[in-house]
Nucleic acid binder design. Structure first.
Length: 414
RNA sequence: CGGGAGAUGUCAGAGUGGUCGAAUGUGCCGGUCUUGAAAACCGGUGAGGGUUAAACCUCCGGGGGUUCGAAUCCCCCUCUCCCGGCCA
């Protein structure tokens, strides 16, 4: 959630920033109005409550002393009734504010380039040079078919479209990649966690998936629970509603989880192969950082993910997202795109974001900042998306006969 | 899933209608003492909102109710612990 006091006091600046994300000023104007009317409703309510509290104390005193208090009682009764509509008004104001406030995206960081969509993203660097093939490289689904690695039909039978089954070497490679990622992250200081794959609604609101993106989530019927769309949700919310000490920061966490997404808006995109599935494996990094140091942590996370790709010998490029392409919670995002020779293009394999205090404010994650409490910065990033890495390994390590080499660093994991 | 007990500040644990945001102990921070430390003693120490600062409002698992007034009484929910069943 954005800082509403900041919005109130720096309206022009705030709305200029959010224009980068395509939020129109009218919505912010409405938000500001709702915020002010909440404050107003609360002020009225509290003033009457204060009066009622002090008169009640007086009444109690009269009771103890046996003094007559019937006049006082009349006032008290009247106030009590007057309190009801004020209470209702305050409650309504709060609900109205929440519905809007929780759906307003984060401010982009000052460093984020202007732009409308992915075409305006800025390539920061390329790492490793794509291999030159002496033959026409195949796409991963063709390789999978020859090798019997991915059973798309039976995945659909077991669940529905966009589900698949890994078989034989592919299943083992998937497991090897997970282990390799976790070990590498651990070496960089990330604590490995194994977390619930189902989280409650409050957690999903904390990281920003709810209330706005409910249609992207698989919900557990009859329960206040959702399958997680990313380990970012449980890892970040580990410290939901907690106050940390400054010296604990930064907290670095990593975890492997499957991720579940409805892909509601992706009809017709990547229908072939396993680039876009309803369930996929991912190893995630999450950091809870001091606001003054979150940029350094961010760079470290980008470098770590890039290093993992390099260790696997996978060519990739590092791309900074423009304002229009930033996700809802992100203030700043860098994507890593891996080279897929079969598709002859770079495809996203990792996305590293600094949400600054946006999630911290929603999830109430704070730290003792001297005598007061301040919001931490939260960061998240894939290191890496396992299924897409498998695809990248297949396409980059293919031979002319469609056999696939195992990258050197993975051999000890196989 | 059935039976019992419980949920209070860092933790432990009092508190059954007003003087309780909350005893006491503990932890933590500061001070005195000490060559230094420990012990002892003194002081401070929850959160959110609000304000220039205060005042003030809210919070004793969550929600609702009774009352002029609720940590305390009533109802619902959740969670935890113990016993039993089931089970990886």
């Amino acid at each position: 959630m954005i800082d509403l006091k900041y919005l109130q006091n720096n309206f022009e600046e705030a709305s200029r920033k959010l224009q980068k994300k395509g939020v129109d000023a009218a919505m912010l104007e409405q938000l500001k109005t709702l915020f002010l009317s909440l404050k107003d409703a609360n002020a009225q309510l509290e003033a009457l409550k204060a009066e009622q509290n002090s008169l009640s104390k007086l009444f109690g005193q009269c009771m103890r002393e046996g003094t007559d208090a019937s006049a006082l009682k009349i006032t008290l009764d009247a106030n009590k009734e007057a309190l009801v509509p004020l209470q209702e008004k305050a409650r309504e104001a709060e609900a109205a504010l929440a519905t809007v406030a929780l759906s307003v995206p984060n401010f982009p960081d000052e460093s984020v380039p202007e732009g409308a969509d992915e075409n305006d993203n800025v390539e920061l660097r390329k790492v490793l040079v794509p291999r030159v093939f002496a033959f026409e490289p195949k796409e991963h689904w063709a390789l999978a078919e020859v090798n019997g690695w991915i059973d798309f039909e039976r995945g659909v039978k077991l669940a529905k479209s966009r589900f698949s089954v890994l078989r034989a070497e592919a299943a083992r490679l998937e497991r090897a990649l997970i282990n390799f990622f976790l070990d590498t992250n651990a070496k960089k200081g990330f604590e490995e966690l194994c977390v619930p794959f189902i989280n409650n609604a409050a957690m999903l609101q904390g990281t920003g998936q709810l209330p706005k993106f409910e249609e992207d989530l698989f919900k557990v019927e009859g329960e206040d629970l959702y399958l997680i769309p990313t380990a970012e949700v449980p890892l970040t919310n580990m410290y939901h509603d907690e106050i940390l000490t400054e010296k604990e920061l930064p907290i670095l966490m990593t975890g492997y989880t499957p991720c579940f997404r409805k892909e509601a808006g992706s009809a017709g995109r990547d229908t072939r192969g396993m680039i876009r599935q309803h369930q996929f494996d991912k190893v995630e990094m999450v950091a809870i950082a001091h606001p003054e140091h979150s940029d350094e942590v961010f760079e470290m996370m980008v470098q770590n993910a890039s290093d993992i790709l390099s260790a696997l010998g996978l060519p990739h490029r590092v791309v900074q997202l423009c304002g229009g392409d930033l996700g809802f919670s992100a203030a700043k995002t860098v994507d890593l795109e891996v080279w897929l020779p079969g598709q002859n293009k770079y495809r996203e394999i990792s996305s590293i974001s600094n949400t600054q205090d946006f999630q911290a404010r929603r999830a109430k994650i704070r730290f003792k900042d001297g005598s007061k409490n301040s919001f931490v910065h939260t960061l998240n990033g894939s290191a890496l998306a396992v299924g897409r890495t498998l695809v990248a390994v297949m396409e980059n390590y293919q031979n002319e006969d469609a056999s696939i080499e195992i990258p050197e660093v993975l051999k000890k994991y196989m």
